[in-house]
Amino acid sequence: MEILEIRNLTKKYGNQKALSDISLTIPKGGIFGLLGPNGAGKTTLIRIINQIIEGDSGEVFFNGVILQPKHISQIGYLPEERGLYKKMKVWDQLVYFARLKDMPASLAKERVSYWLKKMDISSWKDKRIDDLSKGMAQKVQFISTIIHEPELLILDEPFSGFDPLNAEIIKNEIIELKNKGITVVLSTHRMESVELLCDQIAMIHRSHKILEGRLSEIKQQFRPNSYEVILAGFSDSLPEKWDVQNINGNSVFSIPLGQDSPNSTLTKLMQYGEVVGFREILPTMEEIFIQQVKNHSYE
């Protein structure tokens, strides 16, 4: 069952194409990574899902029905450029945002109270935002995104502005939300958090979707079919094309398999010395990202 299905979505700003015929399926549960360089159209797509703007053509389905204003209360959104009312108290602000998402007042207060305690910031509830540090304000901002218990959470660069300690707290919160069955759409440039968190990804480049699928499958798909080899002891007599490096007194190099099977390659390698390491090289998301962006040059 998919929580969000996007069919042939197109959006133009004047003559500038922001989205060209995008189709995407975001399954329920799990963390979905939305990747792409700056200006690819991610923010436009996110804004359309949040019903801030409308697409020119195409459809968006939420839980199998056409996206409607009533779905606003089931979506939580943390924009990349974020802000809070500087002069408003933490408590008032969170209750206000919860109620704007159709939460009844009494429940809103209960949830705010719960989250302030959970994030260990109950003592700030009567402080104004401009009295808080940037990291503190970011925590409040994060709470404001999830306060109304949405089914779908869209986070645009959620870790920017956090120190490593607070980023860790937010990361754990995201995992916890996922375990509760909430679907998270994560838009970020930080490929290491994509590898760590995402189950599935889609990549957008120059308004086109260029990649979509499970993270593990994509990594398989883009593996270079090379192996990293470690031979005990350093030797100069190895073939030059392997580009051997001396690491801790061992010979380390990578070898493309070509048509050979791993076993036959291993047999060959044994002639050169004691094989202490033989491991398939999988591409990092970062490498896939850069390679894909370079390969697709839409104009």
Partner: peptide, 17 residues
């Protein structure tokens, strides 16, 4: 201007027309 420049607006318009 305050809502626009402090970027609250994007959060607001995802909740209200």
């Amino acid at each position: 201007i305050e809502e626009k420049s402090s970027r609250i607006i994007e959060i607001l318009v995802s909740s209200i027309k």
